[in-house]
């Protein structure tokens, strides 16, 4: 017959195990450098796409109203602002 295992310090053992598990979980929660690189890549796409869309709308308006380069200039700059807004929104959404 098996001897009953020592359960006198079971609570301590459980606590130690829990501490170890939480420490390990905290470690894995930290984003890796690859994750950060992916995030940076996404942010750059957010910025560039807004500038590009602003440029496209400006170009379209200019070619339809013959006002080159008025709208092109204004909307490209506004596109840059919109890109920063996009980055701000996506960064706020993640935290």
């Amino acid at each position: 017959m098996k001897k009953p295992k020592d359960i006198s310090n079971l609570d301590e053992k459980i606590d130690a195990f829990k501490r170890k598990e939480t420490a390990r979980n905290q470690k894995s929660d930290e984003p890796s450098s690859a994750h950060n690189a992916a995030k940076g890549f996404q942010m750059s796409i957010e910025l560039l796409s807004a500038v590009f869309i602003g440029f496209c709308i400006g170009y379209f308006l200019d070619s339809s109203f013959q006002t080159k380069p008025l709208f092109l200039t204004i909307l490209t700059i506004l596109g840059g602002f919109a890109g920063v807004l996009n980055i701000y929104k996506s960064a706020k959404g993640e935290n």
Partner: peptide, 14 residues
Amino acid sequence: VPIEAISLLSKPFS
């Protein structure tokens, strides 16, 4: 308004 409009239109592009 133009900034928000560009921001909205740039979403599908990104």
